[in-house]
Design a protein around this nucleic acid. Structure first.
Lengths: 200, 200
DNA sequence: CGCTCGGCTGACATACTGTCAGTCACCTTC
DNA sequence: GAAGGTGACTGACAGTATGTCAGCCGAGCG
């Protein structure tokens, strides 16, 4: 019988392995099918070990949202902080958004799924969306002070069009095979453009 | 000790009581907090009795979707089957849609929640949305043959704007207090109108 | 009156979660 | 290089939900 030498690993090392395992499972299974047992079987550690590193699956997923949020802010800032009346800037921002979701679709899908499963994540996800609502509404109001976006209700429009983005991007890219990014980008861009950049 | 006379009731009678109980619970709690035990405590019957009438909570909810779909088709047919280039007809259809969701918001929210929880309902819900996509896309193509809706990609636009409707209506009216129906109707109508009824 | 039908239930099997006392590898400190 | 502490790790347990099943019992029928 060969001696199994269990090298002890650092905490962050194991954490990363668990996250990696979850992300790969998420491309294959809906969140409802993923259990702690299933995750840990891919790591060679016992199930209770999971709870040393994370409090729950939703909490693990919640961590990813924070990281992705930073990236998304980076890619959309070009429009959010602009003051020009040029839809192409909006297109660039949306294009960046599409790119992020294409790469992290399973994570976003899992966040949305876990939001219906876990009260804490529901709140975080709601807050995340609300932040975008506020940012887009603010951008619209800035434009309106410059005479752009006539007859648009900043708050409600931001709310509606952001929900569209979230729902469309998650459904289009949340699982494989993904839909065509070009077509999705074009369709949501057209909706944004016509809603904001054309008057009655 | 007074004798508890358990009058035996008809199957449909009990079914209706269970459904009623679930619907009332849904306005108070997210689906994740609702258990079979909780449902049956409100009926004076035991937990296993639930399984005589329904196979699972998601399946119960799925039944509701079928009924609501009929109503929704009725309220939107005015636009789906029209051939005129008049956005007011669209507004009427959307108004009917808003009304249905205002009244049955908790059910719709539960359907969306249960879709992430149950494979079967996920498929049903996906099919439901796909049917709307097809119907709206068909309506757009009919209009385009008459020269309306220039430069609109029928399929992708239908997909995107339907997801907006679903996400917005469920978030706005899925729990109490609900958002203002007038504002929601106006904002989604504007987005539909500008997307379809205004060219580049 | 006896029989069947079907609503109904207690009890069971199963599955997953989260916790905890205790073990063991590794690192410091002397 | 021995002693002791730190923290990763685990087996076992308790809790709670689901779905099933053998069997009870009330109601209606012949």
């Amino acid at each position: 019988m060969s001696e199994i030498s269990r090298k002890r690993r650092s905490s962050t090392e194991v954490r990363e392995q668990i996250v990696e395992q979850v992300l790969s499972l998420l491309w294959e299974h809906p969140l409802r099918d993923i259990t702690v047992k299933m995750i840990m079987e891919g790591t060679g550690l016992s199930r209770p070990s999971f709870y040393i590193h994370f409090n729950s699956i939703p909490e693990l997923i919640e961590e990813r949202l924070g990281e992705l949020e930073q990236v998304m802010i980076g890619t959309t800032m070009v429009w959010l902080s602009s003051t020009e009346d040029d839809p192409q800037i909006l297109r660039t921002a949306l294009s960046g958004l599409v790119e992020v979701v294409v790469e992290n679709g399973a994570t976003f899908r899992a966040i949305a799924e876990a939001a219906t499963l876990d009260a804490r994540l529901a709140k975080t996800w709601g807050g995340f969306l609300a932040k975008w609502d506020a940012a887009v509404a603010a951008r619209i109001r800035v434009g309106q002070e410059l005479g752009h976006f006539p007859d648009v209700d900043a708050e409600w429009t931001a709310f509606a069009i952001n929900r569209m983005d979230a729902a469309v991007l998650i459904e289009a890219f949340g699982k494989r095979p993904q839909m065509d990014p070009e077509s999705i980008l074009e369709s949501i861009f057209q909706i944004w453009k016509r809603t904001l950049y054309s008057s009655k």
